[in-house]
Design a protein around this nucleic acid. Structure first.
Lengths: 127, 127
DNA sequence: CTTCAACACTTCGGACTCCGAAGTATAAAC
DNA sequence: GTTTATACTTCGGAGTCCGAAGTGTTGAAG
C-alpha cells in the first residue's frame, strides 16, 4: 500500500482517480449547474450555428443578461465558438467546438429522456 | 401555414412536440441545474444506499444546508428515496428510485467524460 | 431631418440561491 | 456532567438570476 493515498490529503486533485470522491469535480459540472447551460449546449448542437436572438426565442423565458452570461462562460470554457460578422444590424453566431460536441453527445440522451419523462409525469400513477 | 402553430400561443405545452423549442423544459433540468444535483444522483447511483454523512464526506465542500435542500428536492421529485431508521444516533439512507436510476444512467456518461476531460485540461495546449 | 426598426447585447435594483459556522435533539459512553 | 455521534436547521452575508429598460449602429420610412 502506498501512503500517497488521497483520503484527506489534497482535496480536488487525486480525487480524479478515486471513484468514491465527488468533491467538486470542478469545471464542467460547475458550468452545467447554472441556469440553461445544458439546454444551450443541446440547442446549439441540434440546430447548428445559431444567432443570439434565435436562442432567446427558443427559450422564451430567459433574461438576456443571464443568457449572455451563460454564452460567455461556455465560450470561455471552450465549448462554444462565437463568430461575429461586421454587418448592420449586427450578426453573431454560436456553434459547438469539438469539445462542445463531445459534451453535447453526453447530454443528448438526458435531454431526450427528460422530454419524454415530463410528458408522462402527469399520467395516472401506478403506485 | 396553419395558425394552429405554437409560436406564441401556449408556452410550455406544445413545446414538447416541437424539437426546436427549448422553453424551460421544466422539472428535471431545472432540478439538475442546481448545485451538486448531478453529482448527488451519480454518487448514490454508484454506491447504493448512502447515509447523509457519507454524501457530505464524498463532496468535501458542500454546505449542509444546501445539500439537505438538494436531497429534499430530489426526494420530492421522486428520484431519491429516503429511509429513516429510528436509532440513536439517527440513521438515514438515501437510494435511487426506479426513475432515479433512469436518470442516473443518462448522467453517468457525462460524469465519466467530465472526469477524463478535466484530467487533460491542464495538458499542454496544441492551439 | 427625424423617427423607426433590427440586432446583440448591458445595466441596475430587487428577488432568489448558496455558503459556512453555529445550533438542535437524543442517548449512550466516559 | 461532559463528550460523542448523526442528521439535519437557522441565520446573516455573499453570490446568482430576473426582467424591464437602455446602448450603439445604420439604412429605410415618413
Amino acid at each position: 500500500m502506498d501512503e500517497s493515498r488521497d483520503a484527506d490529503a489534497v482535496p480536488g486533485r487525486s480525487c480524479r482517480t478515486d471513484p468514491s470522491c465527488y468533491c467538486q469535480l470542478g469545471g464542467v459540472l460547475e458550468l452545467l449547474s447554472r441556469k440553461h447551460a445544458i439546454q444551450v449546449i443541446c440547442l446549439v448542437g441540434e440546430t447548428g450555428p445559431v444567432r443570439y436572438g434565435e436562442i432567446e426565442d427558443a427559450f422564451g423565458a430567459v433574461s438576456s443578461s443571464t443568457l449572455s452570461a451563460r454564452l460567455d462562460e461556455l465560450v470561455g470554457a471552450g465549448y462554444l465558438a462565437r463568430e461575429q460578422y461586421d454587418e448592420i444590424p449586427p450578426r453573431v453566431e454560436y456553434d459547438l467546438t469539438t469539445t462542445g460536441e463531445q459534451l453535447q453527445q453526453r447530454l443528448q440522451p438526458l435531454l431526450e429522456w427528460a422530454v419524454i419523462h415530463e410528458e408522462f409525469e402527469d399520467a395516472p400513477t401506478e403506485t
